[in-house]
Design a protein around this nucleic acid. Sequence first.
DNA 1: AAGTATTTTAAACAAATGATTAAAACCAAT
DNA 2: ATTGGTTTTAATCATTTGTTTAAAATACTT
Lengths: 215, 215
Amino acid sequence: MAKQLKKKIDQTTEEKIKIAARKLFTRKGFAAVKTRDIAEEAGINLALLNYYFRSKEKLFKLIMEESFLQFVKGIAEQFNDENTNIDEKIEKLVESYIDLFSQYPDLPLFILSELREHPDAFSSRLDAVTGISRSVFVKQIREAMKNGVYPEMHTFHFLANMMSLIVFPFIGSPMLMKITDISVKQYQEMIQERKKMIPIWIKAMLKSNAYKLIK
Amino acid sequence: MAKQLKKKIDQTTEEKIKIAARKLFTRKGFAAVKTRDIAEEAGINLALLNYYFRSKEKLFKLIMEESFLQFVKGIAEQFNDENTNIDEKIEKLVESYIDLFSQYPDLPLFILSELREHPDAFSSRLDAVTGISRSVFVKQIREAMKNGVYPEMHTFHFLANMMSLIVFPFIGSPMLMKITDISVKQYQEMIQERKKMIPIWIKAMLKSNAYKLIK
DNA sequence: AAGTATTTTAAACAAATGATTAAAACCAAT
DNA sequence: ATTGGTTTTAATCATTTGTTTAAAATACTT
């Protein structure tokens, strides 16, 4: 098998298709993307898509799998680091996710849409993530609450709030930019600012003692 | 023109189609929904869709328009109320949106996806919302910051944070439920809790003085 | 009840779309 | 150069899908 000894510098056809498919699927979703769109975007013959990936659906699942891993990779790593404390974990997580989404702004909406339409399609993968509730991070948080460092707060709220503050500005960027009347450049500056501000906000929320106050 | 004097109790065919279309479009988006799906869901003959709404696209735009108005209606109203202070506005806004999204959980993702793919399709409608930056609410916030009640924070961050905390738990519900291992019932309780907690958190974030701390 | 307008239906159409095929082009080794 | 494998291409196929048509059914008016 003399396999692509030629194109070592250039992208291989397989790569070109995957890159084009990832771009389009991530931006528009499975149903809105036609195989001919992918072929055109990749600059390849339509039949090559099936030659390399069998079907549109198989290609989509491949892209989805990779995107999903990219999405959750950071969590599993950071959440179980024994050598960092709560504050450090929050800072690292916020920074790495803001960097990731700055590079792939369509990624969050893509994953969350897919997860919403097919909640069970990734339950096996999510099991790896489910470990979150038993992660070092969550244990550290619970410990801190037990010791009175922070008031009580359900893990749901803590994780929801953290993810909210990180993810939403990417999902809602067109709306936020219109509403607040800022340029793309200003938007990107705001996003960068949030790397430092979100950890401060999270701590402020943790300390707010909201649970006692609502009773 | 003798127009439907019969079905005053029952849903009219037009309504049945709209209800079915809204349900499917909101859940799966334009491209993933087939006209035959809508017809089946509505329990009507396929041709009636075109008879009443001309085309799939016209029907979609109609649904989209209504959904969008539903989405932004609350903002315009609450934001320009001269008779409520900052705290009251936040409380009302949080409560009305959590109620809205509890009833229509797919609405936020639907709107935000559409806005992301076609940012200009609603710029005319958003202009009505753009008034937000000149709203009573934003003026009140800026005033409070000028008077030292709250430290400085860009409107972008304030609005982004508020919308984040409200909207994300709906967008990310499948993921959040899996990760935190809670039931649908528990999830709904958490969501209700947030009505009271989010205003507290927002105030805590406002007071956190994050801008000074990051310098 | 007859006549007229409106609504509904089954069938069909045309274009779009995912996939396949068979031949051509290409590549590396002999 | 020839061979044997791999990759690419143009053409074609079979379904799906949005829409239309013409007839049937229904509702309303006189």
